[in-house]
Design a protein around this nucleic acid. Sequence first.
RNA 1: UGGGGCGUCGACAAGCGGUAAGUCAGCAGAUUUUGGAUCUGCCAUUCCCAGGUUCGAAUCCUGGCGCCCCAGCCA
Length: 581
Amino acid sequence: MDAPETDRNIKEKGTGGTGGAGSAAPSNFIRAIIAEDMRTGKYGGRLMTRFPPEPNGYLHIGHAKSVCLNFGLAGEFGGVCNFRFDDTNPSKEEVEYVEAIQEDVRWLGFDWSDRLYYASDYFGKLYEYAVELIKAGRAYVCDLTAEQIREYRGTLTAPGRESPYRTRSVEENLDLFERMRRGEFGDGSRVLRAKIDMASGNINLRDPVMYRIKKVHHHRTGDTWCMYPMYDYAHGISDSIEGVTHSLCTMEYEDHRPLYDWFLDVLDIYHPQQIEFARLKLSYTVLSKRKLLKLVNEGHVHGWNDPRMPTLAGMRRRGYTPEAIRNFSERIGVGKRESLVDLALLEYCVREDLNRRAPRVMAVLRPLKVVIDNYPHDQVEYLDAVNNPEDPSAGARKVPFCRELYLEQDDFMENPPKQFFRLTQGREVRLRYAYFIKCVDVVKDEKGTIIELHCTYDPATRGGDAPDGRKVKATLHWVSAPHAVSAEVRLYDTLFRKDDLDEVEEGKDFTEFLNPASLEALPSCRLEPCLGEAKPGARFQFERLGYFCVDTVDSAPGKPVFNRTVTLKDEWAKLRKAGRQ
RNA sequence: UGGGGCGUCGACAAGCGGUAAGUCAGCAGAUUUUGGAUCUGCCAUUCCCAGGUUCGAAUCCUGGCGCCCCAGCCA
């Protein structure tokens, strides 16, 4: 195998690692194994990993962990990572997925150069190896039905029985296998099996199926084949053909490793090593393609890219950044034990990234009309506002201010608890970048709902500072009523009300724990005028509220729809919540 | 006496015989024109349990206990 060493896997700057001295990346057992193999020259100083998704669904945050691990480690040690679709089961796989998956990995920031492969590229070679195994007396065609094979397999505690077809001659097996290939037999009528050990404690070794007949059109090979190789047979050989050195997969494949090794050993071909790590579990969501598919198919969400989905497509639409996800992948570590990662860690990672880069703007989600009684009727002032206090290079902008404004309904309380230090009657607060105002009157409708506030402002506090040095306890965001842009803003909460959805009691379905309040759409929010022309995908911090991005699907020119990516940390919300309990 | 894996703070996670890193969460305080950000301090005398070896054990040994995975012609 040749070993391209100049390819770069990482488009953007990687996260560093322990490959070099003084790096900050935490160590993990896989990095340690690779470092040791590199040190001893086990593969001639070569490192090749691979990311092998099956194109039968969209990638989710759990896959991101694997992508970051495989591409990240390769980048760190000067190796490469191949992109390979594990497309051995055409009845479940679709081109829609192969395209979406590539887009997701590219978006995450990784580049596989020209190393895009498909297990189906190797169908010919796989067939030849199968013939070789038959000739060596290590594989046979079995006529048992699926049901019979299951019966003969035995149970977890009882050994299996050998198939009556196990002793067929090499000639007969060769003939039958060739005729299987030619399509002479019906689906499910025969399979090719490896001849290993029907009494093995490891059920995977009880003469596993290598090929099954499936007269199904394949998205790449068309109708060339009417039988397809099974994962266990195809995967190790694919790794071997490509010259992979470290084949990383999740823990449930640990029992398959003896089989992975068996095929390569018996065939006596290049032998990569399989290493297993624990798959990611994230609180308040599900990470299994089966469950995600169900959410999509049953309409619990609006597609794979619904912003509430833990798919990369959903998270991207929600406003997550690749940097945040890569950082999250690094922080969670890699181990062998099952663990449930706290959603709060993911949210921390997005906030950390967005805090640095998202321009700040003001947006009022639940508008409450305010009239500044002593402000001139036809006057408009343009006040200076900082775009990002974390980034001076982001500059400043002008924000219009006039007599009629909108404030957030939550920022006014008639009978506030003592911890509430926002606006109330008689109290003075600051309007960000504008003036100190004091509430002098409250207007209600016949039902007693507050519909308007009357305030006075202090002209001497322009910009937000009082020349006499007096302080206010709160600074509120606001928007000029006549200048405001109206837009829909979608607030998201966790998709589920339960943190660990594997802990669902017998007889209950995980969908029973869906959060009915996971989406709240606010149709008429009032935004600062500059937001009218925000481009789809653009991310902002709405001051005091959270990070939002322009929806790429439902926004129209001049009529943006915003998705809340994540809230800001909120002391007041915490106090309120504690007070209720 | 089926096979395999795993058990370190509320959640992740270092540690590899020399006397429990770090991060998130939480709590307290400083600071603040975002109750944001930032900064400080606190948060495992103890590593599933019980024995043993050792001057010394989360790390080694023995025996328990607990959790996860495997009986697709899925991956």
